[in-house]
Structures are given as C-alpha cells and as structure tokens.
Design a protein around this nucleic acid. Structure first.
Lengths: 358, 358
DNA sequence: CTGTTAGCGCATTCAT
DNA sequence: ATGAATGCGCTAACAG
C-alpha cells in the first residue's frame, strides 16, 4: 500500500527508455516485448514485463502513431448525440470495433457544418484509422472536400454523396408508402407530412413516397400539407400546430424523424386533440415512445443498432485491407401498427375539443 | 520514394518541411506561422499561408502532441450513450469545450468496467488534456487506480470516489422525499421503489430518502417493496412485473432511472393496469416520455445538459491552470406533477383489468 | 524577424 | 536474441 504520489497532478510517465534501463536491456528489446515479438528469450521477456509493471509503463500513443501512422482509433461523426437514432448507431458500432482492438470516439456536431469540418480535420490530424460519418447535410463543397481529404477508410450513413466510399442506407421509400397507403385505406384524403428537408436522402425518399402513394390512389396533392424543411423537437411541434390550426386541417399526420415526431405528439396533446379520434398519427424512429404514448402510436421503425454494426463491419474490412469497389447496403424499415390510426371523422366533427369522458 | 509509407488508403500528407521548402523559409518559420506568432513579417506570413493552402497542409497532431504534451482534446466517459441522461451530458459539455478550442470525444463503455479501464488507459496514452468521467460503479480497486493514473485534470459526475477531483453531483435525496411524501399525501401506504443499486450514489440517496420519508410518516418499511439492484429497460420491466403480480402489490410505484422507468411503464401497460386508477406512478429522467405518455407521468427531473456544461467549465478552469482544492457542486432536481398520481383504490378493487371505455 | 538545432518516445533496420 | 542507430513531424531554445 505505498502511494508514490510525488506530485498532486501530472505524475511522471515512464518512457520506454526508463523501462529498458530498469530491465537492463535496450529500448529495441522493450519495444519488441511490447509488440509481442516471438524472437525474444523467455528470460528477458519476463524481466521486461516486470519492469513495465513496476513502472506502470504505458506506451505513448502519440509517439507510436507518429512512428507507425496507425492509431487503432476510429471516429464516429453524428449530427446529434441526444437523438436516439444516432446514439444507437454508436452503441451498435462500438462493440464490433472494440472486439477488433479499435477504440471508437464519437463526436457530435450539433448539426453544425463548421464543426463537422472541424472534426474531419481533427480526425485527419490525429491519424484516425477510419471514420463512420453521418453528416447533417448533403451539400457544401467544403464539406465534400473535407470528406475527400480524410484519406482513411470511411463509411457514410444514409447520405448520397459524390464519394467513392462504402455506405449504409436506410430504406425510407417503401415504409413511407406503406404508411400513407395505410392511412388512405382508412379513408383519409388529406394527410399531412412532416419530415426532413428534401435536400437530404431521408427527406427526399419520404416525400417521393408520399407523392407516389397519393398519386397512385388518385388523391390530390396539396403542397401546403407537406412540411419538409427542418428537423428536431421544435420543428415537429411548430409544423403540427400550423397544420392543425387551420380550416383545411388534415385528418391524419405523418411525422417522420425521431425528435420531430416527439414534438408533433406534444403539439397535438397541447392542442387538446385526441388521437386517433380527432387526428390519426403515424410517427417514426423513437421506438421508446411509440408503445407507451397515449394511445400507442403506429410507427415507422428501423434498427439503427444494426446500422452501426454493419457500418463497423464495413470499416473493419477496409482496415484489414479488403479491397474492391465501394459497397452500398440498404437496411429495411417497417411500419408497426398500433392504436393511433382510425377512420377520419370519428371525433366531434369540425371541433378540436377533446371528446369522450377523458 | 517512400511517399505513402504504410498508410492503407493514404494520400500523401504534406509535412511542415515540404511547406517550408515551397515557401522558401525554414520549418521553424512555418511552425510559427501555424501557431499565429506575431513575430513574423506580413510578407513571409502570406507566403507561408499560400504554401500551406496549396499543399493543403494539416499539422500532424501526433507529432505535435508528442512534442508539446498537449492535444487539445477532452475525453468523456459515460456508461451508455443511448441513455438520454448521459447523452445530454455530452451535448451540454461539447459547446463549452468547443468554444475553448477543445475537441470532445465521447466514449461509451456499455457499463462494462473493463472497457472503462481501457478508455482510461487510452486517454492517458493519447495524452488527452482532461477527462469528464461518469463511471458505472463506485467499487473496484483497479478502477480507482485507473482513475488515479489519469494524470490530467478530471471531473467526476455523480459518484462518490476516493479521489481528489472536481465533481458535479445531482441532488437525489430531496427530490425522492418529495415524491414519496406526495404519494403518501394521496393516501398511499404501500409504495414500491425501483432504482439503481445502493452501491452507487444515486441509488443510495434515493433509497435513503425513501426510507426516511416512510419513517417520518410512521409507515412500515417492507423490504420486499424496495428493488435496488440494477438498471436498464429490462430491469425496470421485470421488477415492476414482479411487484404488481402479487397479492400484496403496492398501490404506487416510483421507478427512478431513465431506462428503468421506461421499462416499468411498458410493464404496467402490458399488464393492463391503468394509471393512476390501478396504480400510481412516479418516473424519472426521461423527460421526453413523461409528458406524452398516457397519461402524462409525474416525474423527477434533472437538467443533465447543465450538468455537462458545468463539468466542462470546471474542467476548463483546471486546463487553464486554476489551482485550488477539489470543488463539489450539487445540481438540483425537481418533481414535476402530472396525471399519474391519484388516491389508491380508485380503480376496480382487487382486479388488474383495465377499467373504463378504453 | 528568421534560420539552426536538438530532441519528444517509439518502431525498425542493420548489425552483431 | 539483442543492441545501436535512425528518423517520424513537430516545437522551442538559441543564435544571429
């Protein structure tokens, strides 16, 4: 129980040279032992190991990275850590990478393009061996340039970018068509859509599916009902409010995007609208909320843990030298039916007041 | 030509020497320009800047870190990225650190002590300048040793550890007392508690508050009603089921811990118990779910963004050389009343069937 | 103001 | 099987 605490902060870190000195060998030998080289006699190996332990030697990663150009580190860039969709990607990727001896460091840009570029530069500067990237936008020459400059293997998540990298996509089109057609089957003709901007793949796919589904059923397209400009809780709240507080309000709403959906749900509640009597609702992504909301919400769901796992596997392949053209993988989504969809007009017609015994 | 060395997919990265050559200056001058030194003539500065841009020069962080022992990097260790409580810490800390020129890298251990130690070692090896640490347990000599070994400033979140570091705590005791007393005021005498193990501060504080509140009201303590052994969705689900599926079932439940609460909520719903008629419920932490659940749930809430911000500020102080004894700060919690608490026995007595029109 | 020089800690090649 | 020597790219101390 001897506590060698010479200094309150900044204890001395043993270098390879000190270990060599203590073990009475050369630094080269220590290095070989640390690397697990077989060309070392058992005797000296033990001696070195002992010295390392006594000095609690930890190789300096910076020096090693500089010498070898390898850091056994992978970076994950996501727009928003607090959004379940993205945190699940991290949680899915981490065990895969960890098992292969890589540390995964996650960076959240808070949807700030400048910070995304900062991160890409930092990753390059810190010689991260690989990257999993979920950028918030698809535009921006500087962004593309930054991504091109990364120089190490990279996997892109659910974005269409002019890059020659492996990608993992989510299926959005079929799921959204199913959702819209489901509502139409219940008799809805005016369906509001709240989702991300068409400037990024998820928004683009979802809007396209919405339009196709409406068209296929011969229903008119009212552009006023399509809200595809933003994301987040407040966005979902504001758009839902705007849609529902009007004469021509839709009888059903699809709010796609995890925080967006949550905002929409709160807006409907605070307006005193009951689901599905006053308005039917289909949500997306926030799988924790769907089943416990009042009532349970029909949702478009996707397995983002799996997306993270697959992205990590793609990356590991490249890290281990697998060559070949860029791979693209599309991960399925599904619609989980619950109690938030019903025929239109089952509530007190023309009124936004909650009905029933409440 | 060993231009590309061992880099897997490496494009060539310009070094400071190449920039010096192109700008016809010495490497020292380039270094000074990069560092923004004022002792440089405008002419050469421009020349160097131009060369840097043309070669798209990015300083090698590993080399720089090795030379200076500074990486302008901060590590955040959390038990589980997908848990809103922790991801909010990251989201709160990041802007503060970012504004001060530090990059925040988040590592999620998935509540695995071995990975936590791995991270601490990695952080040390990679010369992270500081750490914000939320370890899953409070025990473990190896863990403590690992934390002691981090030689750089550190802020600990809501854990009592035998360390001399700044800490940010959450207030749990008062909030829990308020919650219990609230239930007692409604007439509840058998109140179930589901929370984290008493081996860590949050569980310890909450259990203590529960016992004190019950005792202060002269109510008997039934140890069977206290479930303090785990955490997570499944744990909250299982314990709620176990508690409610018995003759002596409690009339009210407090489920503290974000995923835990969510599991409890699902369990109650799947049992067909209606809240608050069959059982009153107080949740915690998952502020997204509380207001939109059916019915809206009374919750113990705390601002983890603020915890992250404060931890980051503490750390920045130390990074900027502020000296002095370890600081401890306790962040308030509050109980937000909603519709999930009522007098006991307002449901169909002796039955677990949902009542009402559904 | 700017060039020169000397390492930082490590992995590696070339000797032995 | 092991030691000696050589930079990796960069910053900082010291000269001019």
């Amino acid at each position: 129980m001897d506590e060698n605490r010479d200094r309150p902060t900044g204890q001395h870190r043993a270098t390879i040279r000190e270990v060599a000195l203590a073990a009475e060998v050369s630094t080269g030998t220590v290095s070989r032992v640390a690397a697990g080289s077989p060309r070392i006699s058992e005797a000296t190996r033990q001696r070195v190991l002992k010295a390392m332990k006594e000095l609690s030697y930890q190789p300096n990663a910076a020096a090693r990275a500089m010498r070898t150009n390898v850091s056994r580190t992978v970076g994950l860039l996501i727009p928003d850590l607090t959004c379940p969709i993205f945190s699940r990607v991290a949680a899915g990727a981490e065990p895969v990478l960890s098992a292969a001896g890589y540390m995964l460091f996650t960076y959240s840009s808070n949807r700030n393009a400048a910070r995304e570029i900062d991160f890409l530069n930092a990753a390059r500067q810190r010689q991260m061996d690989g990257m999993i990237v979920s950028v918030s936008g698809e535009g921006g020459a500087e962004m593309i340039e930054g991504l091109r400059g990364v120089g190490s293997p990279m996997v892109v998540l659910d974005r269409e970018l002019p890059l020659d990298t492996d990608s993992v996509f989510n299926e959005h089109y079929q799921a959204m068509r199913t959702a819209v057609e489901h509502l139409i089957a219940f008799g809805h003709r005016r369906i509001g859509l709240i989702c991300a901007t068409e400037k990024i793949r998820p928004g683009r796919e979802r809007c396209r599916a919405y339009r196709d589904a409406m068209g296929a059923s011969g229903l008119p397209l009212d552009p006023w009902l399509i809200r595809a400009t933003g994301q987040g809780h407040d966005y979902g709240h504001a758009e839902a409010q705007s849609l529902m507080l009007t004469r021509g309000a839709p009888t059903a709403l699809i709010s796609a995007g995890s925080d967006t959906f949550c905002g929409t749900l709160r807006a409907l509640r605070s307006l005193g609208l009951s689901i599905p009597e006053d308005v039917s609702l289909v949500g997306a992504d926030d799988i924790e909320i769907g089943p416990v909301a009042g009532p349970a919400i029909t949702m478009i769901e996707r397995d983002m843990f799996e997306a993270g796992r697959l992205a990590a596997r793609f990356l590991l392949d490249r890290l281990e030298g697998v060559d070949g053209p860029a791979r693209r993988l599309i991960l399925d989504s599904r619609v989980v039916m619950r109690q938030s969809v019903a025929a239109p007009g089952s509530g007190v017609s023309g009124s936004h007041l909650r009905h029933g015994t409440g």
